[in-house]
Design a protein around this nucleic acid. Structure first.
Lengths: 255, 255
DNA sequence: GCGAGGTTAG
DNA sequence: CTAACCTCGC
């Protein structure tokens, strides 16, 4: 079994690359963030014609998440129960072949002194509450997506420069730890305890070409899934293509 | 001798097509309108490297005119003497192998009741004055470019619909006639007294595919040049290409 | 930088 | 419809 996450930064722009990626890598599940398109603008036919099932939660301009799957999706759930009135489309969950897949596009937060950071705090509390409940219900669980948190200094190209900054603050790292404390395992660090495995590189300043990124896209696994984990890789080839997303896909392989 | 005019609607976007057109058609002179780039953003090196001389008058976003020539350009002149403070870059003249070439991007005018139409009136008066003076000085003279006037009903795909409208009003046609009255000849009509020879097709509504255009780009000749005129053609192939300008090149051939 | 949206201009 | 600006978000 193969499951991947990719912040595509506009599915309108990236659909050709997503289609090519699916054809080449043949995952069982691919989850997408930042669709940036309305619910009824999702290219459902393009996926269906290639034999993929899809569920999505669309929003104009911002956010938007989708799960693409070779097998049908069951018990689809949108949003966070603790934030019932949140208009931002950031969470979609579904069960695929008995595995609970929770796809998240976590709040960016802009800066620690921004009102958006308060929203990020509330949002992560609501996410943790939701994931805790889901874990009680689904032993086989994968929580993955763009977390907008670099969990450790090893996940940052210049830890000194980023210390205390958005994505890297102690408070955000505590939110990430709180998720792990539910009984989740950071799949990439489980396979690769050391080394830089960045998943996002700022478009500005040719950061990708310079190798300067952050690891903010993650795949977190329940114990039952961690037992079966065989490999995790960041697909930097895709980030190197023409007109790329600023994020690379991250792909986990299971027995 | 071959001389052509082309409103490129952004030289930034159209440079590959302009380079290809020069290589394929090998004119002696090509004049361009609507460069839409600043003076120091003109791709001078691209032309120089292919053996072309160029002079230009650039402006950010709007207007902008250039003369590209196989032979050197002499006595370059910018603007209209009667409008010394006009910031709009619409006129460039130069002498090439003894022929005075005056390239104009005439005012559009928007609508007869627009303040821009008053500017168009003043501008054509200033142009006529300038051309009259130039004709006294240069027997071999070519005045060409985007005139934003369809001189006759035969130059309009639906004369009834356009009657009295911008490009087609009696007053604008009188301005065009006033230029001819200086002793100039409409080269295309000299060679093709009848028939539709449109040079512009609105991007909207697939007007090119429907064959619905206007003839608003012209090549006007002094008597000495008219004597030598052999052919005039509108290059509709270029308008049919991918990502075209809304105007087609017009090309005159001389003995 | 690269998306998105909107406005102005043709 | 195309292309130029601007603002916004990341």
């Amino acid at each position: 079994m193969k499951i991947a996450t990719w912040n595509v930064n506009s599915l309108n722009v990236r659909l050709p690359q997503v289609s090519a990626w699916l054809a080449q890598h043949q995952p069982d599940v691919l989850v997408l963030q930042e669709l940036k398109l309305e619910q009824d603008k999702f290219p459902a036919a393009a996926f269906r014609l290639s034999g993929w099932h899809a569920e999505w939660s669309g929003q104009k301009t911002y956010n938007g998440v989708a799960i693409i799957s070779r097998a049908p999706l069951q018990d689809v759930h949108l949003g966070l129960p603790a934030l019932p009135d949140d208009p931002q489309r950031r969470v979609i969950a579904a069960t695929i072949n008995g595995v609970r897949v929770i796809n998240v596009y976590c709040v960016n937060g802009e800066a620690l002194d921004s009102p958006k950071f308060d929203y990020k705090r509330q949002w992560f509390a609501a996410l943790t509450e939701f994931v805790q409940a889901q874990m009680a219900q689904y032993p086989q669980l994968v929580l993955l997506g763009d977390f907008n948190i670099a969990p450790a200094d090893a996940d940052v190209y210049d830890a000194e420069k980023w210390r205390g900054k958005i994505h890297c603050s102690d408070e955000e790292r505590q939110w990430f730890t709180a998720l792990l404390d539910l009984g989740l395992t950071d799949a990439l660090r489980h396979i690769h305890p050391q080394g830089a495995h960045y998943t996002w590189w700022d478009y500005r300043g040719a950061m990708f070409q310079k190798g300067l990124g952050l690891r903010i896209d993650h795949i977190l696994l329940s114990a039952a899934m961690t037992e079966k984990l065989q490999d995790v890789q960041v697909d930097t080839d895709t980030r190197a293509q023409e007109r790329p997303s600023d994020h690379a896909p991250v792909c986990a392989v299971f027995q």
